[in-house]
Design a protein around this nucleic acid. Structure first.
Lengths: 365, 365
DNA sequence: TTGTAAGCGTTATCAT
DNA sequence: ATGATAACGCTTACAA
């Protein structure tokens, strides 16, 4: 196998630059010469040396894709589609997962810097913002979450619409008092904006918000499970607590750390519905129901964000919202490449995508 | 920010080669000079140009990781750990997913060739074997499945032990006649070896094997669901069929393509247990049970390979086998790097890892 | 249309 | 211990 352009050039009695052109700018080479060269290349299985090309062209055509948790199948789907699109558009994607760890977040960025990537799509956490400054003038797109720096394009779910849909669905189902469980709103912007959306919800509904400190999936599952246990316990001893006439305001806000700590429930009605701000939390809630011997959506309603795929394997229905992440990922990577290629030069913008209500996607046809 | 070694050299009044040495071979540079250089580098955030280094050193320090389906959270976990280990050992992993598609399989290999990777870990399908020949003399390690070429190191589950554990567990539970569902054994070696293992099982049990043509997760789920429906329907009309005295042999083998096609059940007893050769198949079986209004593990036992994480969210128990994939991945990537660095030069070998029986990992504590 | 030659940033060899 | 220099394989003015 020829190891370089020069080998080929010698073999075919042409100049190295002609071979180079045959590969990179075929129309600048006579049809006959071109054929001769390309045939020979195909026969011998020669591949141009990427390092040499990148060095010479002073660019890497490499895109960084940084996600929070590759083991989350929705994230994996999004990563997958971004990789495909990147390849199709002639770029080489490098996929990294931070697993919600600050260390890996920093390492990932560092690695991409070393690699000289020409653009980055990232699912950021609150600590990412400062790290992103290291990417001097290369385009960055924020996916699914926001650093709130307003420096980059953003593609994510419309949390306001989502929370509105969730609460209004549960209200229609007869719920009067919701328990809404979030993850760490300091680290993860989507929890923060979903919480904010709840505060601004127009529904005439009582609700209590609960926050789990956890950041990764397992922490959220475990936290939500414990929390659900304590909430249901407290609910058994529920007695009306006068809190004035304004039912739409948030009435309690707890950061529960152990299951010994009983959940505070304040309102005029006992809790009759749960909203999980994320599918890991939903998994924990479901486990909590089992611990307590309760049936989901019979004793108490459960509604979840993210429409996780395990819903189809449950023997009961569970209403949810589809997560437009894959669509957002598609837009994000395309926008990034447009930026890289200077095909898009408007101001940075945030695109908020609507989720869809999903009430019948149960396995029972 | 200095853009090259030369910038730094000029700034600090040393030769470029000294700067290079300070970075790559610190002990070959006087402590004082070294400090001066490294400090300056740290201050300015300079990164050596990887392309130039690779070009000069004629190596890429890049490892290809090719998996079949990144959206499978077990695979994603394995990919994750391999990336971490690769980084720790100084290599840059490039993660690609074939989604069980021949096209993407070919494309992935091609991309790795272009990248000049110095090693590959791959979860192969039967069509991969010929493609792997393109990697001339760089080491390849096969993970989770085998191309049966015996050219590379292999790390995967011990399917013989696994199937033995599955059948013996179900027998203990009182099962007499199993329905064992596999995916495409022509494309996916793990289905083939699990089937082979079943044929050689020492249990005194009747079983019928069924094969789903599908390759990707959704095909398997859909196929298994349909199949389960037809099996259960057939089971209702079960009548003893004389097949001689040899109960341990396989009695039927069907490739069902539509649910109109009734499943053939042959044996002395009606089917009273299912084995899913994979977690996607298990998901389909569970859905089939719901379609038929049956309760899993009450009306009929269901046993699955892979111990999928959704088991913990079911309101009932489901016995399963843990998949030692993450451990295998750890071994695989380390072996690969050992090969690359010539730290391991024995003959290629296949390491088979035992799964663990998992009967109580239900959410009900 | 094709050839010539310079240079991308690094490292390895050799000389000092 | 440090410096000078050539070379890695490719692209791209510019020249022919």
């Amino acid at each position: 196998m020829p190891e370089s352009l020069i080998d080929i050039a010698r073999k075919l009695n042409v100049a190295p630059s002609t071979v180079s052109r045959a590969i990179s700018a075929p129309d600048k080479v006579a049809a006959k010469t071109r054929q001769k060269i390309l045939n020979y290349i195909k026969e011998t299985g020669y591949h141009p040396n990427i390092s040499a090309r990148n060095l010479r062209k002073q660019q890497s055509k490499t895109i960084g894709i940084v996600v929070n948790d590759l083991c989350d199948s929705l994230i994996a789907q999004a990563a997958n589609i971004m990789q495909d699109i990147a390849f199709k558009r002639g770029y080489f994607p490098v996929l990294l997962s931070t697993d919600e760890s600050r260390t890996k977040e920093r390492e990932s960025i560092e690695r991409l810097l070393v690699l000289n990537v020409c653009g980055v799509v990232i699912i950021p956490s609150s600590t990412t913002a400062s790290l992103l400054d290291h990417f001097n003038h290369i385009p960055v797109v924020e996916l699914d979450r926001s650093t709130s720096t307003c420096k980059n394009d953003e593609f994510r779910m419309d949390d306001t619409a989502a929370m509105q849909m969730a609460t209004s669905y549960l209200k229609e189902q007869g719920c009067k008092h919701l328990s809404v469980i979030f993850g760490n709103i300091d680290r993860i912007s989507s929890f923060k904006s979903r919480h904010l959306a709840l505060l601004n919800c127009s529904q005439e509904l009582e609700y209590n918000s609960y926050f789990i400190k956890g950041v990764n999936a397992q922490d959220l599952i475990d936290g939500a499970r414990k929390l659900t246990n304590t909430i249901i316990e407290s609910n058994k001893n529920f007695s009306v607590e006068e809190i004035g006439s304004d039912l739409n305001k948030e009435v309690a806000q707890l950061l529960l750390e152990s299951s010994d700590n009983p959940a505070k429930i304040t309102g005029q009605n006992p809790i009759d519905g749960f909203i999980a701000a994320n599918h890991s939390i939903a998994a924990g809630i479901v486990q909590g129901f089992y611990d307590q011997g309760l049936e989901v959506n019979k004793d108490l309603k459960v509604f979840t964000f993210d429409n996780p795929d395990w819903i189809s394997i449950l023997p009961y229905k569970m209403p949810s919202l589809t997560h437009p992440l894959v669509k957002a990922a598609d837009l994000a990577i395309n926008r990034l490449i447009d930026r890289i290629e200077h095909k898009y030069s408007d101001n940075v913008e945030a695109r908020l995508l609507r989720p869809q209500l999903c009430v019948d996607k149960s396995s029972q046809a």
